[in-house]
Amino acid sequence: MSALEGRTILVTGAARGVGRAIAHACTEAGARVIVADILEEQGRATSAELLSRFVKLDLGDPQGIAACAADIARHEGELHGLVNNAAIATGIGGPEFDAIEIGTWDRVMSVNVRGTWLMTRECAPMLAANGTGRVVNLASDTALWGAPRLLAYVASKGAVISMTRSLAREMGPRGIGVTAVAPGILRNEATEYVPPERHALYENGRAAPGAMVPEDIAPTVVFLLTPGALAVTGQVLPVNNGFVFT
């Protein structure tokens, strides 16, 4: 039996990059995957690849988040796993803390922090109903080592890590496990703008040196979505080839 056989999994930000890799890995593990993303054309393309369903989602819109969860309840009737992957990453190697615009800060927080909370809140009743619900939050190892010139993103992912721990305690009595995965910088279309020296910092500083791609993150997420992963609830797992140890 495949690891996720018979389980329905919602992956946000699944149109491309890490989310797409996770959606593919979950499908290969036997899950029925729902692709959610603000990028409609790319999201529909990914869902077509997986023979799955697409739901448009803007994590900056609370009403849209509620509508997404309602759509899943109406069409799927159940949900076993939520992967909170969608996020805004701004300016890696960009402005220092005193040059960040307030509008940028607020947008990052509304999507990465408030959006993760609201998505979890709206999906919680479905996740609790089956007794083996799992939430996997995509954090970042930038919040573990304090990456410079990226403060809004680092602060938002630090909040996601703290939220993961608190949610694990609140949702555990309902049978829901909540964990976080903290990747390092990956080589994909979402990081093409990252300065070469920042890529080199990561790739040369890893215990197992070299580049990482979205497919390197997906197997860990698949495990955390399984019924047996409750034993590691509340934990934050750096998946970065040993750039940061915890």
Rank of each mutant, 00 (worst) to 15 (best):
E5G: 06
E5Q: 14
E5W: 01
R7D: 03
T8Y: 03
A14N: 01
A15N: 09
A15L: 10
G17T: 08
V18K: 00
A21F: 02
I22D: 01
A25P: 04
C26A: 14
A29M: 03
V33S: 02
V35S: 00
A36N: 03
E40M: 05
E41M: 03
Q42E: 15
T46D: 03
T46G: 05
T46Y: 02
S47R: 00
E49P: 04
L50P: 02
R53G: 02
K56T: 12
L57D: 01
P62I: 01
G64M: 06
I65W: 02
A69H: 07
A69P: 02
A69T: 02
I72C: 04
I72A: 00
R74Y: 08
H75M: 10
E76C: 13
E76H: 07
G77M: 04
G77Y: 07
L79E: 01
H80Y: 09
H80L: 02
G81R: 01
N84F: 07
A86L: 08
G91W: 13
I92T: 11
F97C: 13
T104D: 15
W105A: 06
W105N: 06
D106I: 04
V108P: 06
V113S: 07
R114D: 13
T116W: 05
W117G: 00
W117H: 12
L118E: 12
M119P: 00
M119L: 15
T120F: 05
L127C: 04
G133C: 09
R134W: 10
V136F: 08
N137Q: 05
T142E: 11
L144G: 01
P148F: 07
Y153R: 01
S156Y: 00
S156W: 00
A159S: 13
V160M: 10
V160W: 08
V160C: 09
A168H: 11
A168I: 10
R174M: 15
I176L: 10
V178I: 09
V178D: 04
T179Q: 12
A182Q: 08
G184E: 04
G184A: 13
R187Q: 11
E189T: 12
E189S: 12
E189Y: 07
E189N: 10
V194Y: 03
V194I: 14
P195Y: 03
Y202M: 14
Y202S: 14
E203H: 13
P209V: 06
G210F: 07
A211Q: 12
M212E: 10
V213K: 12
P219K: 05
V222N: 03
V222I: 04
F223G: 09
T226F: 10
T226P: 08
A231K: 10
V232I: 14
N240G: 05
V244F: 05
